[in-house]
Amino acid sequence: MSELFERVHRFRQSNGWIFGYMLFSSLISLTASFVLSVDALELARNPGADLACNINSVISCGTVGATWQANLLGFPNAYLGLIAEPVVITIAVASLAKVKFPRGFMLAAQIVYTIGLVFAYWLFYQSMFHINALCPWCLLVTLSTTLVFSSLTHVNIRDNNLFLPPRVQNALASGLRMGLDGLIVVLWLTFIVLAILLKYGAALFA
């Protein structure tokens, strides 16, 4: 059993797994951003448009898409995903092909993606507690952004790309060796799912 755990752990630290799931998640995120961008155009053309994802009062991208939060910077937020995700896809594909990026480049990627993560969760918060409707594609963006962020952070800590003080770097690397990153991601996503179920419950399926 212990040997199996060790093998799982070693696999989770491998480039193939980390960049593989970074690639997978960023492709999902790009797809969702693309659908949301197309929907935004559709809503602009026809404010009453019946989008395929308007399922009920809680799950409705038409409701979410029509809010000011959906165009915070004056254009649909999803455009940001169209800009940022291809960069991550490039990093993942190149790294799978054994390209080693400069530390400064990876640090810049980490900073920009962290801003993206904060933005994604701000939108999720607005959607949950102020708009009172969720949109399936936005949730997919929240999920995939979280996964991309965790893979990017994982690799940047592992490869000491973040120019952190040695003490902090050692602590974080030790955390990775103990597999805490996986536990944190799983607990975090569980927390999000439970929050949605507790707030909306049966109405999700009505």
């Binding site: 030790s174 103990m178 597999g179 536990l183 569980t190 799912v193």
Partner: peptide
């Protein structure tokens, strides 16, 4: 000593992850 400590915690972390996923 450090490696042994990490190994021990790693086992519990893995059990924890598996437990949460199973519970879900």
């Amino acid at each position: 000593a450090q490696a042994a400590r990490e190994h021990k915690i790693r086992t519990w972390t893995t059990i924890g992850i598996a437990g949460v996923v199973l519970a879900l």
